[in-house]
């Protein structure tokens, strides 16, 4: 079953086209990585999926419903984490998780906040101001926030970007376990190709706003004759966009 179905999604900013007629699906239980060089349109795509940016044309369906007409209902089944949108610095982690549990309509918000503090090893930081935490701790908290409503569609924009390798590995494992437990679907962006290879069922490569490849990591390696995803990334980023027939 397709949790997310994107059809001909396009975003123009005046004469600049940030996202150009992209179509893809993410199915239940599937982890799809959205890759591409800087400016490829990944963040714009994610922001359209969160209805922070209106598409110029095209359609986004979540669980078969159009996001444009069912915004609040669908957002309550989704969540996201991004390094440019950390939790407010003037709350404590416990307060932040409680506030967001409430904003996502979670009735047992106190219990949910405590459960996530435990789950993400944040209990000993629970009473400190978020602004006093390290960037890595704030990022961990941001990912914890993404689970307040046990989302069925999770959008993770570089969730481990500011973490050291052991912490990143731990966090990845935790995210994967929680996702498998809830049979949720994930759209994951990262510039860490090892991470992408570890977590992804499928990879979508974006370049200059267009999808240039959409396949499993294994198939992509075979198609490009490379053993290393990073080499494929570099090749795709260099390739000129071919106009569709």
């Amino acid at each position: 079953m397709a949790v997310l179905c994107v059809t001909d999604l396009t975003k123009h900013y005046n004469s600049f086209t940030a996202v150009d007629r992209i179509s893809f699906e993410v199915r239940e239980g599937e982890i799809v990585s959205l890759l591409g060089p800087n400016g490829a349109g990944k963040t714009t795509t994610i922001q359209m999926l969160l209805s922070l940016v209106s598409p110029s044309s095209g359609e986004i369906q979540v669980f078969g419903k159009n996001l444009k007409y069912h915004r609040e209902e669908l957002l309550s089944m989704m969540n996201f984490s991004a390094p440019y949108s950390l939790l407010p610095y003037n709350l404590t982690p416990r307060e932040g998780l409680k506030v967001f549990s409430m904003l996502y309509g979670v009735r047992d918000h106190n219990e949910r906040a405590n459960a996530l503090l435990e789950e993400f090893n944040l209990m000993e930081l629970a009473g400190r101001k978020i602004g006093q935490l390290s960037t890595g701790e704030q990022m961990r908290l941001c990912v914890a926030k993404a689970f307040v409503n046990t989302p069925r569609l999770l959008l993770l924009d570089e969730p481990t970007s500011s973490l050291d390798p052991p912490t990143a590995r731990q966090l990845r494992a935790r995210i994967l376990r929680l996702i498998r437990d809830s049979n949720g679907a994930v759209l994951w962006t990262s510039h860490n190709m090892r991470e992408v290879e570890t977590v992804s069922d499928r990879i979508i490569f974006l370049s200059r706003g267009r999808i240039v490849a959409d396949d499993t990591p294994g198939n992509l390696k075979r198609r490009f004759g490379e053993d290393d995803l990073e080499e494929i990334f570099i090749t795709i980023a260099r390739e000129p966009i071919r106009e569709p027939p």
């Binding site: 609040e72 957002l75 904003l103 996502y104």
Partner: peptide, 18 residues
């Protein structure tokens, strides 16, 4: 403005709040 100053505004608008 508190949401803007604390860079929380995207979290707020991406939440299912009318």
């Amino acid at each position: 403005l508190e949401e803007v100053w604390s860079r929380n505004v995207i979290n707020l608008f991406a939440a299912p709040v009318k």
